[in-house]
Each structure stands twice: as C-alpha cells, then as structure tokens.
Write a protein that binds this DNA or RNA. Structure first.
Lengths: 348, 348
DNA sequence: TTGAAAGCGCTACCAG
DNA sequence: CTGGTAGCGCTTTCAA
C-alpha cells in the first residue's frame, strides 16, 4: 500500500550522489569517502528514509532472517526456546520471525510455506506434529533446518532430541521408591507421535519396574485449563491414583488446581509432577517436582546450526540428544499409609 | 541466499503459458480458463514452486502484514492481545509479525523501524515505554497505527486506553472496606509514564479515601521473579503492610510465593491483588483478586483499526477508553484483628 | 571513490 | 482469456 514512501533515489538526489553510493553507505561498505558518507547520512536523516526491506531482500538475495515455528507459544517451554534463539540471532544481525501451529499439521504446512516464501536463511521447527512428506521436501530444499523432537536428520537437517526415556525412567523410579504404584498420566494431543511416545515410555518403564502397576491417562489441551480438565477426567475413573505425571509443567499447574478444589492435599493425598522445569514450576503451590529440559541448550544449538559463522559444521545432518534431569520439589511425597483419602469437597 | 529457487517463470514455461497467467492463477484472479488454471497448478505442484513473498510485496505494493509491538511477550497480558490480533488478521488473509521491546525505548525505536522497513499495512504498539519524537513521526507516516496506553490520538492514529483510575479506585475502596490502611505497591519500570501513573493513582485514591494511609512501593522486573523480589524489598521496609497491590497478575503470583516462603498467610496475614485477570490468576494459590482488563476487546479494536473492510472509520484518530472490572477471589480478606503476625520462617 | 546499468521475482496495465 | 512490458526499490558488478 504505502507507495508514497521516501526511496533511496530521493536520498541520492538530495545528497547529490548516485543510488549506488547511498546503498554503500547504508550497508557500511567502507569504501565511501567520509565527507560523502556524512552527506548521505544527513539526507537520510532529513528525509526520514527507511529502506524497503523487501526490495533489499530481493536484490540482495538474503532476508537475514531466520524462522522459528512452534506448537504453542503460550506454553513457556516454547517461549523460552524462542527467546534464546532471538537473542542469538540479534547478536548476529539477524531477525527472527515466529509462527504458531497450535499442534495442527495443516497449520504447520502453512507456516513452513510462509517461511519459505519469506526466504528465511534458516528454519527451526519446534513442534510435535508432523507431515510426513514435509521432512522429505524440506530436506531437498536449499534452506538449513533444525528439528526438535520430530523428523530425522539428513542432508542440511539437524535433529535435536531429548532422551525422554531416561527422564521418565528416573522419574518413575523415584516415584516407585516413594511407594507409588497407581499412576495417572496427564497429556495433550495424544495422537501425535512424539507425545504418544511419552505415554508409551511411562507404560514400559512402569511395567519393567514393577508389574501390576496401573496407569490411566487423560488428554486435553496443552494449557492450564487442559491440565485441570484432564485431572477431572482421571478422577472420574475412580482408580485412585497416588501420583499424577503430567506431560509438562503447565498442565501440572492446572492439575494442582483441580486437586486443590476437589479437596486433595498435594503431596499428602496425591503426588504431582511435570516436565520442562519452567519458571512457573517454582512459583506454583506446592512447587513442582519436574524433569528439567535444557531449553537454553536447544536455543543455542538452533543458533549454531542456523546462524552464519557458527560451528554449524559440527552438527550438520546429525542428531543431538539432550539429557533431562530430575528436579525434586514439594509436590511429590511418600504414599500416605491410610488408604482412605480425605473426603473431597464439593466442587464449587 | 537461496538464489537457486524455482521461480514463476519456470512454472510458466512448464505450463506453456506466460508469467502473467501464472500470477493470475496464484492470485485467484478468476478470469483464467479452467483448463489453463489446472495446467498451471499442476506445474506449480510438480516444481514445488513457492512464490517469493518479498518480490510479491515489492511488486504488489503491499505486504498484507500487520505488525504488533509489545513490551513483554512473556507476560500473558500481551500474549493474549497478540493472539486475538493474529486470529483476526488470519481471517482477513493477513499475516502478523511481532516484536518485543523488553520495555526499552531504544528497542522500541528499532522495532518500529523494522516494521516500517517491512512495509506493514498497519501497526499496533502495545507498550509502556515511549519515544516522544516517535509518535510525532509516526503520525506523519502513511501507515495506520494503534497505540495502547501511550501516545495521543491524531491523524491516522487511534488510541486505546484503560480507565485505570477507575479500576484503582474500585480496588482500593474494596480494600479499605476490608479494613486495610497500609499498602505495598509492587510494580516494574516505575520510571515509565504509563506505569508511574498507576502508582500515582493509587496514591491519590488512597489519600482521598482516608488520609493517613501509608503506601510504599517497590519496583522490579515484569515477571514472576520480579514480583517475588519486589515483595522482599517491601518486607525489608518493615512498615507492616496489610495489603499488597501488584501492578499486574504475573508479579502478584511472584508476590504470593515470597509471602508463602516467608511464612505469611494470604489473605490471613496479608492480602494480595493484581491487575489483568490473566488465566494464571485463577490457577495460582490462593486464586487472585484482580482487576480485569478486557484484552480481547483490545485485540478486536486493533483488528478493526488495522484490517481492511472493517469499521476502521469509526475509530480513526479517536481515543477509546476501556473500563476495567474488579474480580474478587480468595487472595484478599479482612485485616486480621491481632496486630502481631505469624513469625516468619527462615528463608530456605 | 563513485556512477551506470543490469537485474532480483513478481504484479499490473495495456493490447490483442 | 492471455501475453508483453513496465516497473516495485534496492544491490551489485563493471567501468571510469
């Protein structure tokens, strides 16, 4: 729309130089005589000139931008990664543009198209959903890609994974040592592979650790309310879990609320734990036992792979596995000896 | 960088039509014969063609994008607004690109420059910091702008404000009716006008309501940890507040933690309240008394002003005042009769 | 150190 | 309904 903008040529005229020179000044091509440079800068200032970035990207062949696609920006897990990527990119003079998919692979496809349309110099895909054909076509494309949690490494594609199996094992062993034998698993988008795998892992680990353990699961949206509703679902099953494992902290905080309102004491009656170790996990009540996922590392690796002048080579086409770590706080405890729980209050 | 991309011309060759026709198909200019359209679409598919958005914006004279600049995406207050704007924009076939300033006016200037460089069709500036000269230059620019909380309305500029004075008054009256006379005010970036005004408002309202009330304030970062530290500052003052008013919910949740860890009961020993009514305010413990700010309305107004085919005209250059609303939950209560508080636990 | 000219990939206008 | 032809605003050789 804004066709009525000050353009490079006008600056050139006012500074009595050619467009080429203005361009050089704007891009710090140090070959410009200082006096002319000053003249140009002055003209830029006086005219309030703002270079058209589209024209620049088009002519220059680079957008100096990297794209980040996440499943749910509302969940601090994703936001923390984004923040790290952004500050890394800024430091290299790059912009980062972000997109949200809300766990929809249809939206994922659209977002990837958008990013390619913008000719981003690199793309980070931090999502749980996946379109099979997509990885394929992406790996043939010219732009470097980093996946988190989905897709397999290949030419120009780096893969970051978390060793969930290990995190889950540590967590369940810890819970077992506290006497827990009956678990609820709170999750979201259970149909998506990377998430389903976590439930499977819980199932396998518990089975291996002590046969006869029971695990029920419920799945809702990936947010506070989702955690709350999932617990409501779980409680309706009346299988009396002694511990509820949540697929992430944000849902765990939602779980905490439902249990509190139903009159359960955490961890007295029921233990609760999450994954991620977001800041909120320390601020909720009670503070959450959780499994730390190194989001800053993820962000750094994304930067290393996608930004120029970094040690990209060492990651190129490889798979990087991150180790999670158990963080014990106050939302988990020994199974109470009395088998009958406090009578739940009526829901308000 | 990616100069090795499939371009419109190649599609044209393969479909045996001119570039113009390909462009028409891509833009749904319904005048194309169906058979040719099919041929083009097929070629697009086979070649995996992705239009270069920069070229498109440049040639078309419009980026079909609106920009949103916020102070702190980490605070759900801003994110909620963004979400509303995004879905509105999507519905109109627009993209939205967002930027964070972290309350730095230097960063604000950079972000605005970036948005102008991208030739956004509209710009929403939801921040607390402000560069005086900026409003000026923006109002002369060709792009429609919506401000929240800062700047004054003028040609092409719409202003959204919240009637904080009224919100504060309602809140303080409520607190006074509970017997509170000694307040702490938790805030962030107190030097910024829109935020300082809130403290001033609290001061004025309390003074008017009952002379002799005491109000101390502390200012930290705008996040959970900031709320916690601000309360720590306040407690160090030893003026024994009976209520702590937080400038927003996120800081209030941080406040809750500090009080809990110091052994205070909320609301038994101290009442706490916030502003915004973010989802978290219902999920924390105890649930927060707060003042609801209609974020969805803000988002809608932004859309109305910035997106085409909406009732922009009715807002153009005007100031819109939104009314906040008190939401009473469980973090506030009567001042306890016994003047001596529970002995604080040692900090862990 | 500077200018002229040739694009970058696409849209839009004008013929046909 | 379709093709040819100008640009959009900037960067980038290539000469001077």
């Amino acid at each position: 729309m804004p066709r009525d903008t000050v353009k490079l040529e006008e600056v050139a005229r006012r500074a009595r130089v050619s467009g080429s020179t203005v361009s050089r000044v704007l891009n710090n091509l140090s070959v410009v005589k200082n006096s002319t440079r000053m003249r140009v800068l002055k003209a830029v200032e006086e005219l309030g000139y703002q270079p058209n970035l589209h024209a620049r990207s088009l002519a220059g062949g680079s957008s100096r931008t990297i794209g980040v696609i996440v499943s749910n920006m509302e969940n601090p897990f994703f936001f923390d990664i984004y923040k790290t990527v952004e500050s890394g990119a800024r430091a290299s003079g790059y912009e980062v543009v972000i997109a949200n998919t809300n766990y929809s692979s249809e939206q994922l496809v659209k977002s990837i198209r958008l990013m390619i349309g913008r000719r981003v110099s690199g793309l980070a895909i931090i999502v749980s959903e996946m379109d099979a054909a997509l990885t394929e076509s992406l790996s043939k494309g010219p732009i470097p890609v980093v996946f988190y949690d989905v897709g397999k490494p290949s030419q120009r594609i780096t893969n970051i994974r978390v060793n969930y199996e290990r995190g889950v094992r540590t967590l369940v062993e810890y819970l077992c040592s506290l006497g827990h034998r009956s678990f609820g698993f709170v999750s979201h988008h259970a149909a998506l592979d990377p998430i389903n795998i976590r439930l499977q892992t819980v199932l396998e680990v518990t089975k291996a650790l002590a046969p006869g353990m029971t695990v029920y699961s419920a799945s809702r949206e990936d947010d506070l309310e989702g955690g709350r509703l999932a617990v409501r679902d779980l409680l309706a099953l009346k299988f009396d879990p002694t511990a509820i494992i949540c697929v992430n902290d944000i849902m765990a905080v939602g779980a905490l609320r439902e249990l509190r309102e139903e009159g359960y004491d955490v961890p007295g009656d029921i233990s609760v734990c999450g994954f991620d170790n977001i800041t909120l996990s320390e601020f909720c009540y009670p503070p959450l036992t959780t499994v730390h996922i190194p989001r800053d590392r993820i962000g750094q690796i994304v930067c290393d792979c996608l930004l120029p002048g970094r040690s990209a080579a060492s990651f190129e086409g490889s798979e990087i596995i991150l180790d999670p770590q158990l963080v014990v706080r106050e939302s988990t405890g020994l199974v109470s000896s009395h088998s009958s729980r406090r009578v739940p209050r009526k829901r308000s």
